[in-house]
Design a protein around this nucleic acid. Structure first.
Lengths: 247, 247
DNA sequence: TTGCTCTATATGTCCGACATAGTTATTATT
DNA sequence: AATAATAACTATGTCGGACATATAGAGCAA
């Protein structure tokens, strides 16, 4: 018996649950069957199912069985759940799009709030990230490009945290993978990187000067750069409809 | 042995964890001790601890013990966790304030997004809530006042859901208790209720006409009503500093 | 049809045992 | 005496089997 079988089994059952087609039944096998299927004891199975229950994925009724809850009940605002959806989920693209929409909608607002509440430590954290971005901008394309991405993510994280509000701070933990994925998609050239850095710097300066409106506008400009770059990178005809209701 | 001891034990351990003073150790008793303390078997204790682990509250290392994770790791965006913090947490007021700040910041934005994405069904859901508010507005103060509150909450929930975005939809599930608490605080008179209803109606109409900016402005006016009412209801000197960093 | 009991099923709980991973104490070596 | 290898200890992780309990369905009776 290896160590932490429970985690491995949880992952397997999560795959089993999230990758199911919608036309299948929403009942999952009994504990005993799962126990045999994965070659572990019932206790281990129960530990995994307990985790999924805590995250709102499944629902267990004594005597009846274990069923998958409707997706609206899932605790999407849990980074593990988000990870499972994007790895195994059949509607992973939809989720990714909605996360992106969400981020585009809030990021300017977050910047303006950060401008109101950022502490000195928050400012230096943002500055540290920006410095890292600048230092790695000149050598883009080499292996250090990855370093640039990490500093980019760190920059955005620092701004969310600078709101000094738990909700925003927690949200960035959820959004981080989405931010990371978006940055990876858009590989910029050296000159574009310089522009990106300078636009990011405008956000920092507005926050430092405690000018919410300016921070808001600067964040909008950062996003515009991202959007235009996305449009350029994506296949020409793949402009996502994005509107679920244009009736 | 009663049914669902696990839930009860989870609640007890949650109280034990959340109500601890910060100067105490961050280690919690061994499974065997908890088992004796609550008069249940080790399995039941483990089920409870597994739930708390899944929500990021505690961390367990084989051979070492179970420790409480730093608060920044807690999955605050989980309605159960939020409930525990507000029930047992020593910093419940702080959380409530931050939830309120968050809601004040996003609600106009949510209204504008709803104006872009609301479906016909969403509109009728909002309208249904508003009708309920109007019907129960005249008899405020009686037992139907509670009915009015419920329709008020339903109104806000419907707007979040009308964004057709999972993140906003999940967030309203987290915010609902906060919204409810705020509404309970501010018991309005009959004429003020009429004003409240009419301002809410403006939001609906803007969404129906698909005018994001108007919806945004209308939502701001709804919040202004709430704010002014809060200021009137609260004890005069209790204007929360709210700024964590005015150095 | 309605309502009851009885039965089958699957989860919830209990117990006892051992495995495994950290931590601490002990011993041996230089 | 300082340090490294080893042993003992602690607490969680896993196992197996047993029984309790809640739910659903079948069968039966009024």
């Amino acid at each position: 018996m290896e160590s932490n079988n429970s985690l491995r089994v949880t992952e397997h059952i999560a795959e089993l649950v999230f990758s199911r087609m919608s036309n299948e039944t929403n009942l999952i096998p009994r504990e005993v069957d799962l126990s045999r299927q994965f070659g572990v004891s019932r206790s281990t199975i129960r530990a995994a199912l307990q985790t999924l229950t805590a995250k709102g994925i499944i629902e267990r009724v004594s005597g009846s069985g274990t069923r998958i809850r409707p997706m609206t009940c899932w605790n999407i605002l849990d980074h593990e759940v988000i990870g499972w959806v994007s790895k195994y989920g059949t509607a992973a693209d939809l989720l990714e799009q909605q996360l992106l929409d969400f981020r585009m909608a809030i990021e300017p607002l977050v910047a303006s709030i950060a401008a109101q509440h950022a502490s000195i430590q928050d400012l230096s954290a943002i500055e540290h990230a920006l410095t890292g971005m600048a230092n790695t901008a000149q050598v883009a394309g080499t292996w250090q490009g990855k370093g640039h991405q990490e500093y980019d993510i760190l920059f955005h994280q620092s701004i969310y945290r600078a709101t000094n509000n738990v909700v925003w701070s927690q949200l960035v933990a959820i959004l981080a993978p989405s931010i990371s994925a978006l940055i990876e998609k858009s590989h910029l050239g050296a000159t574009e990187l310089q522009l990106s850095v300078s636009r990011h710097r405008e956000v920092l300066e507005a926050i430092r000067l405690r000018q919410p409106d300016k921070a808001y506008a600067a964040a909008v400009r950062v996003l515009e750069l991202t959007k235009s770059d996305l449009k350029r990178t994506d296949s020409p005809m793949k402009n996502a409809p994005s509107g679920p209701s244009h009736s």
